[in-house]
């Protein structure tokens, strides 16, 4: 009896701090959810009562919904580009020598650990009016005047792609390394071509890693704030920029909260569908 009490006390002590922080986190999210249903009295003040006015204001205006749709569109195609680039690097890492693999890992990890603000700023320096991209284009005579490479969708997408690649590489590399090496050798000894081995053995078996990485990168791209903020310069804002602007500059908490709830719900549905699609694809390859 006493021993049981003691171990229960021990368990409570172990989980208390974590539970407290989790409670604080969900408490804050709860405040956000509740406030999305309150009437706004302007200037950050809230009225009393229950209203769906903020949801109606967000969903009823194509201008606002446009932010969300634009973010989904850019997330879809940047994720596809990042998948191709990341897969090539991950696949190469399984084929190359130990030293090369270490070098690539370290380069990717430094990127992974370097702040998004810094990496996005670096892209800004490349694409700017006097940046190296424009000066090269002018030097080789492709254009006479500096092109506007910055402050548009192209710049935002470039920033997202360049910052997201490390997120794609590591999970795919992990699942490629988990493939039984004998499988490849067996396919080879049975006379399969390199292309067939890749598409019929390697790629299907790497799908779990692809699925995980695609979801991570899609979420990352969809909720981008820094890339549109620095590289879009206000000309190509995404949904996160709208939410920040409504909360901090317009001080319309209920609207910002409603926009956040709608975006998170949409994201959850999309991620669920993606995972379902991947599960079907993985099951398809197991036949």
């Amino acid at each position: 009896m006493r021993a049981g009490q003691q171990s229960r006390l021990r368990l409570a002590t172990l989980i208390a701090p974590g539970t407290l922080l989790v409670a604080a986190f969900f408490g804050c999210l709860g405040v956000l959810f509740v406030q999305s249903f309150l009437p706004s009295a302007g200037m950050g003040r809230l009225g009393d009562g229950f209203t769906l006015a903020s949801y109606a204001a967000f969903l009823g205006d194509p201008f606002y919904v446009g932010y969300l749709l634009r973010s989904i569109a850019i997330a879809v195609y940047t994720t596809a580009i990042v998948l191709v680039l990341g897969y090539v690097v991950a696949y190469h890492m399984t084929l190359c020598g130990r030293r090369m693999r270490l070098a690539i890992s370290i380069v990717l990890l430094v990127q992974f650990f370097t702040s998004f603000v810094i990496r996005t700023y670096a892209v800004m320096l490349v694409l700017g009016r006097f940046g190296i991209a424009n000066r090269t284009l002018q030097a080789i005579g492709l254009t006479d005047e500096p092109l506007r490479l910055l402050f548009n969708e192209f710049a935002v997408a470039t920033g997202i792609v360049l910052t997201a690649v490390p997120y794609m590489v590591f999970p795919i590399y992990g699942s490629l390394m988990a493939i039984e090496p004998n499988l490849r050798a067996a396919a080879e000894s049975l006379g399969a071509t390199r292309r067939r081995i890749f598409w019929e053995v390697v790629f299907p078996l790497s799908l779990p890693g692809v699925a995980a990485a695609v979801v991570i990168v899609f979420l990352f791209a969809l909720t981008s704030y820094i890339a549109p903020g620095l590289l879009g310069g206000g000309y190509f804002d995404m949904i996160a920029n709208l939410i920040y602007d409504k909360a901090v500059n317009a001080q319309d908490y209920p609207f910002a909260a409603a926009a956040a709830v709608v975006s998170v719900a949409t994201t959850l549905v999309l991620v669920y569908l993606m995972q379902k699609g991947f599960r079907l694809a993985i099951r398809g390859t197991e036949r």
Partner: peptide
């Protein structure tokens, strides 16, 4: 629950804390 802060968008986390503080 302990892992969940990874999947909630950062902009939502920040705004939730701002709203809770206020």
């Amino acid at each position: 629950a302990l892992m969940s802060p990874l999947v909630v968008p950062q902009v939502v986390v920040g705004m939730a804390f701002l709203m809770a503080l206020s």
